Simulated scan of single mutants.
Amino acid sequence: MKVLIAPDKFKGSLSANEVCEAIASGIKKFDSTIQCVMHPLADGGDGSLEVISEHLQLETITITTKDPLFRPIQASYKRSDHTAYIEMAASSGLALLKPEEQNCKHTTTYGTGQLINDAMQKGARTIYLFIGGSATCDAGIGMAASLGYKFLDKKNKPLLPTGDNLIHIQQILAPDHLEQIEDVTFVTLCDVDNPLFGKQGAAQVFAAQKGANSEDILTLDQGLFHFSSIVAQSFDKDVTNIPGAGAAGGLGAGSIIFLNATLQSGIDALFEITKFPEALANTDLIFTGEGKIDHQTLNGKVVYGVSKLAKAQKIPVYGISGVSELSASEIASLGISHLKTVLSEGITKEEAFTDTKRLVEKLAKDMIRYRMRE
């Protein structure tokens, strides 16, 4: 029997690879003869580079960049030959800031642009940009500024590339070396389909999670709307209705505008990069999971993507998660025939976070026993 183990991370508890190991250990404790193939996954957000590194031989490049508040920080990206893999969270992520420092009105993606520029200077001709976990809502103007773009106010004075200055932009000047950017193929990977502004936009949906208050959110949303109008005038590009433009505080839109990037579903890209479809061959059962299964799962997260491919090949899917907010019918519609959650074991939330590996192992053992008795 071949069991393919393909989960996302349990954020704050286990990496995707650690989840794989826990599930495999539980299965092996029930029956050591079962073949377990571990295939950790991610959805294009933070943690994606760690997953890709489990599948590919990559070189780590570390440089000094700016953090979301323009302070120097060491940040890394990965590369192989002429391809670079950059996670914006490495230099522009929310996790880099203390809770009292978080306010996406004042943060920037400048450091992400520095990583991009370094990769280009070192010969990258294809760059994958993973844009989850951001601390920002600057529509990518910080990234663009580090690549040579200039953003001027009504007095033709340069603006600091932060979210609160979007509303003051009156002119955008392209860099002299624009051909260096145009020679590179950019693929931006995101796990949401939010537009740039409006009720479902970058500010109104995500800014509160990044420290913005209600007044800040209104200012940011107005700034994103104003920015889109300036972009339309300057570059003849309309990013107002592009799904995913609002990802990472509008970096989805910024990557289209300033890098001519193609937006791609994060999970689809990870499937392609890690050759997940090929791993399905001769598989009898799939274990997948993520820390929290909720309605966002239905919009292209790992569990959704794995279940969709498995359903097409009629491979049964078992799921393990920290917690689930979906109904039994929604779980069934995903194609998951059996789901267990860590919190359903009658333990506290604190225990769930501190003893996750043992609990996942136990669930996997119980579930494979159930499977073999069906």
Score class of each variant (00 low, 15 high):
2 K>D: 11
7 P>A: 06
8 D>W: 03
12 G>H: 09
16 A>T: 04
19 V>I: 09
22 A>H: 03
23 I>N: 04
31 D>C: 09
31 D>V: 05
33 T>M: 02
34 I>P: 01
38 M>F: 00
40 P>M: 09
44 G>N: 05
47 G>I: 06
48 S>E: 10
54 E>P: 02
60 T>I: 15
67 D>N: 15
70 F>I: 00
77 Y>P: 01
84 A>N: 08
85 Y>Q: 07
85 Y>P: 05
85 Y>K: 08
89 A>R: 03
99 P>M: 03
105 K>H: 07
109 T>D: 09
111 G>Q: 10
118 D>T: 11
126 T>S: 01
131 I>A: 07
142 G>E: 14
145 A>T: 15
149 Y>G: 07
157 K>Y: 07
159 L>H: 12
166 L>G: 01
170 Q>Y: 14
178 L>E: 13
178 L>A: 10
180 Q>A: 12
189 L>Q: 04
193 D>I: 06
198 G>E: 04
198 G>T: 00
202 A>R: 05
210 K>L: 12
221 D>P: 05
229 S>Q: 15
229 S>F: 02
231 V>N: 01
240 T>V: 02
252 G>H: 06
253 A>M: 05
253 A>S: 11
271 F>Y: 12
272 E>I: 00
285 L>R: 07
288 T>I: 08
290 E>D: 03
292 K>M: 02
297 T>N: 04
306 V>Y: 12
306 V>T: 12
309 L>D: 00
313 Q>G: 01
315 I>C: 02
317 V>L: 09
318 Y>E: 03
320 I>P: 03
323 V>D: 12
325 E>C: 08
326 L>G: 07
326 L>D: 03
338 H>P: 00
349 K>F: 14
358 R>E: 13
360 V>N: 04
372 M>R: 13
